[in-house]
Design a binder for these strands. Structure first.
Lengths: 159, 159
DNA sequence: GTCTTTATGGCAGTATCCTGTCGTATGGAC
DNA sequence: GTCCATACGACAGGATACTGCCATAAAGAC
């Protein structure tokens, strides 16, 4: 029959909103990071690295992106002196991306603006519903990652 | 103080998941549309146009994207014969993007795969929670769009 | 009618992310 | 030790999105 189930339909509505919301969040992040010459993409890399030195590949996995995307951003951040590459005692080629004092100051500035912004936006919504939404999104992502593995190399879900 | 409120913190968690989920949804959409040579971006344009002829600018607004992004995709779809540009009786320059039979067939095929996929993924989750999440995402997007307008041309939310 | 504002598309350039391919480093099997 | 699978970075190229700027069409003010 190929008809929509209630759950499938609700999921479809979430998909549309995720696409739209993703765009607006990037816009907002760009605005928050702009006064110190940063963007959403650079900010996100800084945020991961602020949790401790990590290789480019590790940062990429944490963000759910491809290595090359993060590599390019990290190189730009290094060129601006916000991060630096340090030798990795466990891997000769995979250098560690580390925050510099300048990078930490930049992230601190952005973080202060982010708190005020997130509190302002989040404040207009119901706490329990926000938490439910966060949990649902995480579960959906896990379902997608699992589904991708299942129908991976030898997919058989054709029409 | 600049401390996180509970709502702001929950919103922050949603942001991270929206970024990750957005990537996984594009991946999944590419997989669904790939057998007929399409991508998530082209599929989304086809979906809007299937609701009736529309100008490029109208499609862009419906998708929450910039005009140029949609223009490029629409040109590619037209080159492949999935849509065509028709004269707009109400506007000489703004031609209408219309589905072709080929485009409709392609969208139908993708739609059948989408239904099965969305039902499969959505089926593993609670209906009420899915609906709550969809509603929260929509409300958050509206808050962001409103906030953007408020602090628009003459923003004054600096540090 | 004329003027101004707004909307639209065209063109050019940029940012972000992806894939594919390669050479090299690491770590475990043997 | 040697071999092989895996992981990582480098390089090249492409897809998707954005912005800025311009010319023209449409719509409303007058």
């Amino acid at each position: 029959m190929d008809k929509w189930t209630a759950e499938g339909d609700a999921f479809g509505k979430i998909i549309l909103e995720v696409f739209r919301l993703n765009g607006r969040l990037i816009d907002a992040g760009d605005g928050i990071a702009a006064p110190v010459g940063q963007t959403s993409a650079r900010w996100q890399v800084l945020g991961v690295v602020s949790g401790g030195p990590a290789s480019v590949a590790q940062v990429a996995r944490a963000m759910g992106l491809a290595r090359q995307s993060v590599q390019r951003t990290a190189d730009l951040l290094a060129a601006d002196g916000l991060v630096r590459y340090a030798d990795n005692p466990h891997h000769r080629r995979a250098k560690l991306v580390m925050m510099t004092p300048k990078g930490q100051q930049t992230l601190d500035y952005i973080g202060r603006r982010q708190v005020r912004w997130a509190n302002r936006i989040g404040g207009g919504h119901d706490l329990e519903q926000l938490r439910t939404a966060a949990a649902v999104l995480r579960q959906l992502r896990e379902s997608l990652e699992q589904d991708e593995q299942d129908s991976g190399p030898s997919a058989s879900s054709d029409v």
